[in-house]
């Protein structure tokens, strides 16, 4: 699975929680989930659970403090899939 494929799938996951959908049109790895995409912090837990369900992986417990950007979220998924 390529990084770009994960980014597309992550876009589908986080899309539900982005209140202003137009922000998804130019999604980049540098986008902050909370600051730039305006995702409510309470939904970061939902996103982690959605990711775990989609890829059948267990994200590390400290993920919430590390999944600040789209790119960092992709890194976490990529590493977990790689070690699966």
């Amino acid at each position: 699975m390529t990084r770009e494929q994960i980014k597309d799938e992550l876009k589908g996951i986080i899309g539900d929680y982005v209140p202003e959908k137009e922000l998804l049109e130019s999604l980049s790895e540098e986008h902050e989930l909370i600051g730039d995409l305006k995702i409510n912090s309470a939904h970061i837990v939902d996103i982690v659970l959605d990711i775990e369900d989609k890829y059948d992986i267990m994200i590390e417990d400290e993920a919430i403090g590390k999944m600040g950007t789209v790119g960092e979220s992709i890194d976490i998924i990529f590493q977990k899939l790689d070690s699966k």
Binding site: H43, V45, D61
Partner: peptide
């Protein structure tokens, strides 16, 4: 504040607790 009426909130359980 957490608004429990938000339909996007998934149920919280032991799985969620390990993250916080």
């Amino acid at each position: 504040v957490v608004d429990h009426s938000d339909p996007l909130l998934r149920p919280r359980n032991e799985r969620s607790f390990r993250l916080i």
